[in-house]
Design a protein around this nucleic acid. Sequence first.
DNA 1: GGTTGGACCTGGCGA
DNA 2: GTCGCCAGGTCCAAC
Lengths: 191, 191
Amino acid sequence: MYFLFQTRPYLSTQQPLKQPHRPEKITDMEREPMFQKQLTQSDVGKLNRLVVPKQHAVNYFPVIDSGNERKIRTTLLSFEDELGKCWSFRYSYWSSSQSYVLTKGWSRFVKEKGLGVGDFVFFERHREDNDRFFIGCRWRASAGTGVTTQVQDNGVAHRVAMVDGSSEQSEKPPMGDSRRLRLFGVNVNLD
Amino acid sequence: MYFLFQTRPYLSTQQPLKQPHRPEKITDMEREPMFQKQLTQSDVGKLNRLVVPKQHAVNYFPVIDSGNERKIRTTLLSFEDELGKCWSFRYSYWSSSQSYVLTKGWSRFVKEKGLGVGDFVFFERHREDNDRFFIGCRWRASAGTGVTTQVQDNGVAHRVAMVDGSSEQSEKPPMGDSRRLRLFGVNVNLD
DNA sequence: GGTTGGACCTGGCGA
DNA sequence: GTCGCCAGGTCCAAC
């Protein structure tokens, strides 16, 4: 298993970067898995939020709720993706539903990565610097196929399922010119 | 016309009471009708809200909207039912639809009373203490029958239509043992 | 005005 | 039967 980090500047037309790139290559040994989640309809739909399972939230993310009044119930978390791009999400506890959620910024991540129901998002952290987080996604493998890889086309991800040695493009997100597609890495498997 | 208030404690398995019982018997003379509404599909369906006709809302309920900013647009209203049980509903003005609604808690009332489309809910208040509200419901009379009465079975309401002097049980909510049914009163008619 | 995000709410379900 | 979690909703303010 390997994880290739891109070193050239990332060109995004969607949002300015809030933090500088960290172009240094991060090895697999330097990162440790935290958790992953298979995305539900509401995680990728119009609700613009990801529900973080409580056990993972309290295990790995900063404390934002302890039942005490006056305790901070929201904060900003930053994650680096495979490209070194930094994603900042608002992280909150919703007492009404007793759930931990990532909100602001999440919908952009879903859109740019082309995530859908059944896909996975995984979270990692730096082994030494536990406050340095990483985020990645893994598309649900098509039935009967082998590896599913990410492909980047001018900043927009597409899914490519390897089927019997041929490359089959998914129907979403909308396709560009497939000849300009460029592979940047395979997905890790936390299972 | 009479209205019998139950004096024994009400046993609910659904939610703890947020306000104490008022077991004293309230006579018909002490209450005055405010308004009633025949329930629509959305009043009893999955929307979990009752639309309060504007004229009644502004006439009888606390002011929650005047178009001014910083004005409270939501509050909590409590109503006593025939059992002395207290029902609290969130009362709001929805500017998007320009309507007054009862939301939180309403679905429980619908379920426990077994209300359906065409049934009636009526609202009353104490003649002296105008801030003390009462709520009741009246099931839509079956075609061609006379009086429709409420029957209570361990905290869950059932409807009983008096048909030619015999008692005919409705199909909803699910029946318990009919021999344990106990009549506690007839419904008032605000028409 | 359409979209995003913030704060709500509720039913279903499993422990 | 009860309770906690969470998937899937709501409204609405801000942008």
